[in-house]
Design a binder for these strands. Structure first.
Lengths: 202, 202
DNA sequence: GCACTTGTTGTACGAGCGTCCAATAAGGTT
DNA sequence: AACCTTATTGGACGCTCGTACAACAAGTGC
């Protein structure tokens, strides 16, 4: 009888990624309070000590998870815009409504996102990641708005309003999924978008 | 030489309140991770054991803090509407913009609020409080919208959109206070509100 | 088949956590 | 002045936390 291996080695990058994904799942399920080294390690199917081998500490793992999740969102939004053709209005609408379709509208991702928000005030490194993410999101939105003919003077405020709307709908989608469905959120975002940019374009 | 008292007794209600307020301050400053019994007790200037005397546990204290904070917000919004006169449009605008003036626009209150949001998924009791708070907010908003002549068919979606906008602006106000000031948020909310209800009223 | 690298485990440590509870003392009553 | 109620303290309990580290073993090259 041949004894099977007690564990399998992984490519360092693959193991890093699996830890990050496990961290995201734990954050989504239990919130920041449950995101301990041991819980995350169990979720990833490894021992607790391994976390220290790949990350400087649990704080660094959480920050890496934030960065990874943010990149996922960015990529999905970019793909949605790229697939929307050349009409500026179509591209803008695709950008906004992509937030309420797969893979972004995933409840797990939204819950993870809220966990990150709750860390911003107490953790300067998380705050820096947030600011970066936020600037990128708003810059892209301002660009799309400019191509739609929105006057420069209104770009900033309109972008802030739309971002706030999207974030607020994300919140509701995550906190009260029984009250608001993703497709209704998308519909609300679409009509609100029209209402917000309509007055300025005529 | 007369020895001064080692501690002072308080009216039970006053002590309860001081614990709740201390909890809110800790939540705002350190987030949910720092809201331990000992930290809160130090913040309130009492011993750790006293928390157990007034609340079933730290979870109950946090829930009570949520309820208290929610009631504070409700009262401020109600007062704003009451002081806005009789014109339906004025009352609606007062309701929305009150969210960005004292005492609601307080960074500490906003940070506390985000800490609560991060608890909703993992804590059924907090989720229940959230739903209650949310229903109340939206019901009042729908009432104000109806008085402005908005068709019944659009009440729900418009109320959701405005609520999302307000929550999203709160978020930004709290997470990036250096990027967005309360008065600019109020201006954005005001003009967005106009844009959102304008198309439906003509 | 041996040696080497290093991914992985398990344990140990100190600190902080929530909770419980006996002892203390403050403030009012008689 | 003696007394009673109970708000308040401070310490003890068992637990989980993050981190560090020595021992182990999987996979690779020779």
């Amino acid at each position: 009888m041949t004894t099977q291996p007690a564990f399998r080695r992984s490519e360092p990058d693959a193991r890093r990624l699996s830890l990050i994904e496990a961290c995201a799942r734990v954050l989504a399920r239990e919130g920041i309070a449950g995101a301990s080294v041991r819980t995350i390690a169990v979720e990833a199917g490894v021992s607790a000590g391994l976390v220290g081998h790949y990350f400087a500490g649990v704080d660094a793992l959480i920050a890496a998870t934030y960065a990874h999740t943010g990149a996922r969102v960015d990529a999905a939004l970019e793909a949605a815009v790229a697939g929307a053709g050349n009409d500026p209005a179509d591209r803008l609408e695709a950008f906004v409504t992509a937030s309420f379709a797969a893979p972004i509208a995933d409840p797990e991702l939204l819950a993870t996102w809220i966990a990150f928000w709750s860390l911003v005030r107490a953790r300067p490194d998380i705050a820096a990641l947030h600011d970066e993410q936020y600037r990128g999101f708003r810059a892209q939105l301002e660009g799309l708005l400019a191509h739609c003919g929105l006057p420069d003077a209104q770009l900033r405020r309109t972008a802030i309003a739309i971002t706030a709307l999207v974030d607020g709908l994300w919140l509701e989608l995550c906190l009260s999924p029984h009250e608001l469905a993703a497709d209704e959120a998308a519909a609300i975002a679409r009509s609100a978008l029209t209402a917000l940019i309509l007055p300025a374009r005529r």
